[in-house]
Simulated scan of single mutants.
Amino acid sequence: MSYAQTQTPEDTQTQQALDGMAIRPSSTDAAITEFDDPHWVYVNRSIVVRHHAALPADRKELLLWIPGTRSPRTPEPAPGRVVRSASNEFCKVAATLGYHVIALSYPNSLSASSCNKDADPEAFEKFRLAIIQGGTSEHITVSRTNSIENRLIKLLQQLVQKRGREDWGQFLTAEGGIAWEKIAVAGQSQGGGHSALIGIHHQVARVLSFGAPRDYSVALQAPAAWYLKESATPKERFYAFNHEQDRQGSTPAQLLENLRALKLDAFGPPVLVENSKPPYAKSHILMTNHPGTKVDSLTAHATMLSPKNKALFEPAWRYMLE
């Protein structure tokens, strides 16, 4: 008998959880009053609750997705309407592989590229840490309440209370902090940079950067200083996926300098995914030039996660996730 033939009424709830559940940050912490676009939560209950033998095993890992810079929407969505993250298809794939998945909403109206003319070699790191942990840099101030860390903790606490069978508590420490070693951090653009920096500061399960990392100092003509710091996460757990025509925040040549500074070239040269197959010569620097003709930089920047490109890029997503 096939898995499809053994489905139960609970499968409706499972499908809803896999398709994504929207949770407003303000519902997890009354002190959060801004940047209240919803978090998105994905979980395959047939894997993490029912442990169905025909499906992948529960990884007992959280994929934390950190989106890129949010430009003001024109027009704004209608009142009460929620807009899915551009990473929706990627997050669903991760959930089918046995991850718990959270796409986090956080203060992301200002791009890290605002630091690229600073003479301070630590400018990019200070900017990102202000957003990740809460704090102040020359360009931005973020309260601890609105930080990535607090928003994640408060969301996990709510999920523990309301969705106890899914075991979200495993991603919190006994002291109520974040159990980073059980978390794979991933993100696009600004979020991809945050993910890489988190991997430098904390030992995490893996780091996946899409359209990133792009912290390159024009003032110093060098990659950001934080790329060269000793990494808490082994570098073999870092992966990057970029477009050859993407110039958002840095030139393609500067991006490659960044990746070399991170020492990802130790695992092989960049591989063009449309001309290769998994495991992509075991490279940790994946590239694309899809659709093979000239495209504008913003289009290139979003190409690797566009839902219309899922069939082409899902093998690369799985390679990075598995």
Rank of each mutant, 00 (worst) to 15 (best):
Pro75Ser: 09
Ser114Ile: 15
Ala174Phe: 06
Val82Tyr: 10
Ser250Gln: 05
Ser26Cys: 07
Ala224Ser: 14
Leu62His: 01
Leu264Val: 00
Leu172Cys: 05
Ser85Ala: 11
Ala222Asp: 11
Ile153Val: 14
Pro307Arg: 02
Glu122Met: 12
Ala240Thr: 14
Lys282Asn: 15
Arg260Asp: 03
Asn116Ala: 04
Gly20Asn: 00
Glu89Pro: 05
Gln245Trp: 00
Asp29Leu: 11
Lys263Arg: 15
Gln7Thr: 08
Ser147Thr: 08
His284Glu: 03
Leu272Arg: 11
Gln7Phe: 00
Gly80Arg: 09
Ile200Lys: 15
Leu172Met: 15
Lys60Arg: 15
His52Glu: 12
Ala253Arg: 12
Arg70Cys: 09
Ala212Asn: 03
Asp246Tyr: 00
Leu55Cys: 01
Ile66Lys: 04
Ala130Gly: 10
Pro291His: 10
Asp296Ser: 09
His301Lys: 10
Ser71Pro: 00
Leu110Gln: 12
Ala261Thr: 09
Thr136Phe: 07
Thr141Phe: 05
Asp246Gly: 00
Arg144Lys: 13
Arg318Phe: 03
Leu220Ala: 10
Ala253Lys: 13
Leu62Trp: 02
Gln16Glu: 03
Glu76Asn: 10
Gln221Met: 11
Ser297Tyr: 09
Trp168Lys: 12
Leu255Asn: 03
Lys92Pro: 06
Ala119Asp: 12
Ile131Ala: 11
Ala57Ser: 13
Gly134Ala: 08
Leu228Ala: 14
Gln190Gly: 05
Arg260Gln: 13
Arg144Met: 04
Ala311Tyr: 06
Val49Asp: 03
Glu61Asp: 05
Leu97Gly: 01
Ser306Trp: 11
Asp118Ser: 15
Glu61Ser: 06
Trp40Met: 09
Pro25Ser: 04
Leu64Trp: 02
Phe313Asn: 11
Ser111Ala: 14
Ala184Thr: 15
Arg84His: 12
Gly134Trp: 02
Ser276Pro: 04
Leu197Asp: 03
Thr14Gln: 08
Val49His: 02
Ser250Met: 03
Pro9Met: 12
Ser195Trp: 01
Ser71Lys: 12
Tyr3Pro: 01
